[in-house]
Simulated assay, not measured.
Amino acid sequence: MTIYGYARVSTTDQDLTIQQQALQAAGCQVIRSEKVSGTSTAGRKELQTLLAFLQAGDVLVVTRIDRLARSIADLQTIMHTLKDKGAALRCTEQPVDTTTAAGKAFLNMLGVFAEFETNLRRERQLEGIKAAKERGIYTGRKSSIDPERVRQLKDEGIGPAEIAKRLGIGRASVYRILSAGS
């Protein structure tokens, strides 16, 4: 039986040290860490490596469930993988131990709250953007396309495909600008 640890933070300026120390204290023999968003399992190479190495009787340890997954769907997928391999999950800061019925129940509740927290954060962000737009503060990303240059090239007799190629933009953008100027 091997005890694997997994530590994750969302941004490169966050520190993994506290999680790594907690995982060492929990007896993890191998610890994999990464700095990547937890809203999806896509692009989480260290997690995928751990899941590939787990065998029957092994234990995956995280400090908190939100370090592992922030959506019920991702958590369930990870849990199915662990179950299929005969591995268990434990948390150092939460009463989660999937070798017990109570631990499994608590795991599901924490998964719901992790997803809820992610959804609340997204709603607050969208509300902030909407309020900033209403105040004229948030205008979005500045356009990287010069409409006048597109029209100038068209007036020179250059076709939309060539304009797009020269300016490094999509043909649809060229057509959009040309139809707006008509």
Rank of each mutant, 00 (worst) to 15 (best):
T17S: 14
I18T: 15
Q19R: 10
Q20S: 13
Q21A: 14
A22I: 08
L23W: 01
L23D: 03
Q24L: 14
A26E: 07
G27S: 10
E34T: 00
E34Q: 01
E34N: 01
S37K: 06
G38V: 04
G38F: 01
S40L: 02
T41C: 13
T41L: 14
G43I: 08
R44Y: 08
L47A: 09
L47C: 05
L47K: 02
Q48S: 12
T49I: 12
L50M: 03
L50V: 11
L51A: 07
F53K: 15
L54S: 07
Q55P: 05
G57I: 10
L60F: 01
L60N: 00
L60P: 00
V61E: 04
V61Y: 03
V61P: 00
V62M: 01
D66Y: 02
D66P: 02
R67A: 04
L68M: 07
L68Q: 00
L68V: 05
A69Y: 01
R70K: 07
S71F: 01
I72H: 08
D74A: 01
D74V: 05
D74K: 04
L75I: 01
Q76R: 14
Q76T: 13
Q76F: 12
T77C: 05
M79Q: 07
T81L: 07
K83F: 14
K83S: 15
K83V: 15
D84M: 13
G86E: 10
A87L: 00
A87H: 00
A88E: 09
L89Q: 02
C91F: 04
T92E: 07
T92F: 06
E93I: 11
Q94A: 11
Q94L: 09
Q94S: 10
P95G: 07
P95F: 10
P95V: 08
V96D: 01
V96R: 03
D97T: 04
D97C: 06
T99R: 14
T100L: 08
T100A: 09
A101F: 13
A102D: 12
A102C: 07
G103M: 09
K104C: 02
K104D: 10
L107E: 09
L107A: 14
N108A: 15
M109S: 12
M109R: 12
L110K: 02
V112A: 14
V112T: 14
V112N: 09
A114W: 00
E115R: 05
L120P: 02
L120C: 09
R121Y: 14
R122N: 12
R122Y: 13
R122Q: 14
E123P: 03
R124A: 13
Q125Y: 09
L126P: 04
E127H: 12
